[in-house]
Design a protein around this nucleic acid. Structure first.
Lengths: 337, 337
DNA sequence: GGCGGTTGTCGAAGCGCTTCACCGCAGCTC
DNA sequence: GAGCTGCGGTGAAGCGCTTCGACAACCGCC
C-alpha cells in the first residue's frame, strides 16, 4: 500500500519530502558517511520503509563511480567439475549480497574482450576469475586494466594479484600419507583428463606434485596417469593402469566423473574395495558420502566466500595476501579401511 | 595505445571531440535512433574504435531507463538437475549478450525480497525465473511489480505471463509410445524424488500424466513411483518397484541421479538390459549417450535461448505467447533395442 | 522565389544519486 | 566576549548518457 502505481520509481526526493529533510540528508543516512542525529535518522529510515525506497542502481553507480556489482567469470568449458561450480556460484552470490553487491555472470568464452567491455563500461567494480590456468592470458589483462580481481586457482605468476585455492599439493600429500599410514606401499593417482594437464590447469599439476612428493618422502611407489571422462573411458584407463601396475593397492582419484565408474569397475577387474585396493578421492563430498568413499572434499563454498571477501577488501583498498591456500582435510570412510 | 591512463573512462564527450561532432550525434550513431550521414557515421565509429570507447553503463541506464541487464533467478536448491542448470545458464548468457544484455545472477533464496529489490532499484529490465512450481509465490509478485518476466517451467496459472518448457507430457507419452511399439505391455515410470512431486513441480507431474495417458490410450499397463537420490536409495526403490511389479519389461527413468545406479542395479536384480527390461530415460543427453541409453534429452540450451528471446520481445513490448512448449524427441540407443 | 518537407546536426534539459562547500549553532578555551 | 572547533543540516554541482526540440541546409514544386 505505497499509494503509487506499480513500476513507478520511488526516488530519494520522495523520501526527503516525506521525512521533511533534504535529499542529501537521506543520502548520508543511508550511506553513513556523516553523523546524523538519531532523531533525523529515525524519521528518514521510517520514510524509506514506508515508501519502499530502493536507490536507483544506475544513478548511484553514476554518481559514486561504484557499481556495487562484481563479475563472476565462469569457465563453462567441458571437463569442468559442474556441481562444484554451482555450489561455488551460490556461495559467491550469497556472500556478495552480504556486502551489498550483486553478481554479474560472464562466460569465459567472451574472453578478454568481455573483460575490456566490463571494465570500460564500469559495469562492475571487480572480477572473480574461475578456472585460472598456469599461464592465463586474462591475468596480465587484469593487471593492465587495473581491474580489481581475485583468481580462483592460481597462475604461475601471481605478483600483484590475489588468488584463492584449495591447497591441492597438500591434498595430494594428504591422500598418500593416509594410504601410507594404512600400510600401502604402491599407490596410483588416477587424475584429470589429459587435456586438463595440457592446458596447464593448476590444481591438476599441483595435486600430482603433492602425490609424488609425499610418496618420495614416505618411501612409497607412486604412479600417476590422466583419466578421460565417461564410464567406458574411465574403465579403460583404470584397466590399463592396473595392467601396467598390478601391485597397486592404493588409488587416489581426482576426477569427479570418474568416481562412480571407478568404484563400479574395480570389482569387475578382480579388485575388492577396500580389501584389495583402497580408494581415496579428491572430489565434492556429496559425491563421496553416498558411496562411503574416503575423500578430501573440495570446499567450494569456502573458496567462494573467501574469494568474495578478498575482493571486497581490494575494493576497499585494503591490502590482501597474494595467495590464500585453504587447508584440505581428509574424511575417512569405508573405501579405505 | 589509446594515450590515456588505464582505468580512466573514455566518455562520449571525448569521442565527440575526437570526431568533431556533438555528443548527441555520437549517441545517435551508436543507437541508430536517427538517420546520420554515412560520412559522419564513419568518422564517429572510427573515433569510437580509436579511443576504445565503451558507454558508461550507469549513465546509460539512468538516462535511458534501461539497464540492459536481465536477472537469472536460479534455484540452487538440492535435488536440482545441476549440469542442466549450468548448460542452461550458459545459453542464457550467450543469447543475452547477442542482444546486448548482461545477466545478473540471483539466487532463489533471496526470494520475493530479491525481486522487490531488483525491481525497485531498476538494476535489471526483466527476469528469468527458473524452477517454477505449479503454485509459485513469485509469480503473482512478478505480475504485481510489473516486472517483465519469463518463466522456465510453467505454473498452474500462466495468464499474462510467458513460460518456456519442454513438453514433458509429450515426453512421457513419447517414452511409452516407443516402448509400446517395441511390444512392451507393462511399463513403469521411475520418477523424481517424492519431494519434487510434493512441492508441485510441473515437469514431474506432467511427465507422469503423459505416461499414464499414453499407456491408457495404447492399452499398456503403467505404474509410476517416485525415486529418491543416491545410489543406495535408487537401488532400493527400483528393487521395490520390481518386487511389486515383477512383470514390468519397460522402464522410464526421469531422475538424473538415478540413471547410472539403475543401469548398474538391474543386472544384479536379475534383469538384463535390454533383453529383460528396456530402459528409456528423460535426462541430459551427455548422461545417456556414454551408457548407450535411449533417452528424451532435456534441451537446456534451446530452453535458455528461447527464454531470452521471449524476454527480449517482452522488453520491446511485442506480444509473446503465454506458453511455449518445446517438442521433445526420442533418441533410440542400446538400452531399448 | 517563396513554400512545405526532409535530412542531418546541435544544444540543452534532465535521469536520480553522491558529495563538496557552506552555514548556523552549540560548546569550548583563553 | 572573541575566536575556535565540531556537529547536523542544506543547496547545488556534477557523474555520462539519452532524447527532445530547434534549426540550418537542401530538396523539389507550384
Amino acid at each position: 500500500m505505497s499509494g503509487r502505481a506499480a513500476g513507478e520509481q520511488v526516488t530519494i526526493a520522495d523520501v526527503a519530502r516525506h521525512a521533511g529533510v533534504a535529499a542529501s540528508t537521506v543520502s548520508y543516512v543511508l550511506s553513513g558517511k556523516r553523523t546524523i542525529s538519531a532523531a533525523t535518522r529515525g524519521r528518514v529510515l521510517a520514510s524509506v520503509r514506508a515508501l519502499g525506497y530502493h536507490p536507483n542502481a544506475g544513478a548511484r553507480a553514476l554518481a559514486s563511480r561504484k557499481a556495487n556489482v562484481i563479475a563472476l567469470v565462469l569457465p563453462l568449458r567441458t571437463g569442468m567439475q559442474v556441481p562444484v561450480v554451482m555450489r561455488f556460484a551460490t556461495a559467491v552470490v550469497t556472500t556478495a549480497r552480504r556486502h551489498d553487491h550483486d553478481v554479474l555472470l560472464v562466460t569465459a568464452d567472451e574472453g578478454p574482450a568481455g573483460l575490456h567491455r566490463i571494465a570500460g563500461s564500469a559495469l562492475v567494480d571487480g572480477v572473480l576469475l574461475m578456472d585460472v590456468e598456469l599461464e592465463d592470458s586474462r591475468v596480465p589483462l587484469l593487471r593492465e586494466l587495473a581491474l580489481p580481481g581475485v583468481l580462483i586457482g592460481h597462475p604461475a605468476d601471481s605478483t600483484g594479484l590475489a588468488c584463492v585455492d584449495l591447497d591441492f599439493r597438500r591434498a595430494g600429500e594428504l591422500c598418500v600419507e593416509h594410504l601410507a599410514a594404512a600400510g600401502h606401499r604402491r599407490v596410483a593417482l588416477l587424475g584429470a583428463p589429459a587435456a586438463v594437464y595440457d592446458r596447464g590447469t593448476g590444481f591438476a599439476h599441483r595435486t600430482r606434485a603433492g602425490v609424488t612428493a609425499a610418496a618420495g618422502r614416505l618411501g612409497v611407489d607412486a604412479v600417476t596417469r590422466p583419466c578421460e571422462e565417461g564410464p567406458a573411458a574411465v574403465r579403460r584407463d583404470l584397466a590399463a593402469l592396473l595392467a601396467d601396475h598390478p601391485d597397486v593397492t592404493g588409488l587416489v582419484v581426482q576426477n569427479e566423473s570418474a568416481v562412480g565408474p571407478v568404484l563400479a569397475a574395480l570389482p569387475t577387474l578382480g579388485r575388492r574395495v577396500p580389501q584389495d585396493v583402497a580408494v581415496v578421492a579428491i572430489c565434492p563430498d556429496e559425491l563421496a558420502e553416498p558411496s562411503g568413499l574416503t575423500c578430501v572434499p573440495v570446499p567450494a563454498e569456502e573458496v567462494g566466500r573467501q574469494a568474495v571477501t578478498l575482493l571486497m577488501r581490494r575494493l576497499g583498498d585494503e591490502p590482501v595476501p597474494e595467495v590464500t591456500l585453504l587447508e584440505p582435510t581428509l574424511t575417512v570412510r569405508d573405501t579405505s579401511r
